[in-house]
């Protein structure tokens, strides 16, 4: 494996796989909790993707070190700022989803989707 392969493809491929876990889980899993987890993994994949975009060779954290100037010495701060927001969004979605799951569990007693739908129609 060449260095080029690693830097050009491997991480993007991993992100793609992680990202596709979301739809896969959504389609093939029956348990609502597992679906939620798949969804979370999908969001994390996007976050990793953005953070990967911000990296630079031989650069340090985007916090000013006295005396060290120059754009190439610091990694790109923008994706980090964006992803803080995305993390919070992910957290909020999960919170809401858990609240909904709690209600479903209380009401229907199960978290298997087909069972829930069956009991819903009764």
């Amino acid at each position: 494996m060449s260095k080029e392969f690693l830097s050009q493809y491997l991480l993007y491929w991993l992100i793609a796989v992680l990202f596709m876990i979301g739809p896969i889980g959504m389609i093939f899993k029956n348990n609502l909790m597992k679906k939620l987890m798949a969804m979370n993994i999908m969001q994390v994949a996007v976050i990793i993707f953005f953070l990967a975009l911000g990296q630079k060779m031989d650069a340090t954290l985007p916090i000013e070190i006295p005396g060290l100037t120059g754009v190439t010495n610091y990694i790109n701060p923008l994706p980090h700022a964006l992803m803080l927001t995305a993390i919070v969004v992910s957290l909020s979605t999960t919170g809401v989803a858990l609240a909904l799951l709690l209600l479903i569990q209380k009401k229907y007693g199960v978290l298997e989707e087909d069972e829930v739908l069956r009991r819903m129609d009764q």
Binding site: E4, S7, Q8, L53, K56, L78
Partner: peptide
């Protein structure tokens, strides 16, 4: 763009 590329458009 390549990872760690200091000349990528984003950077």
């Amino acid at each position: 763009p390549q990872l760690y590329d200091p000349n990528s458009p984003a950077a």
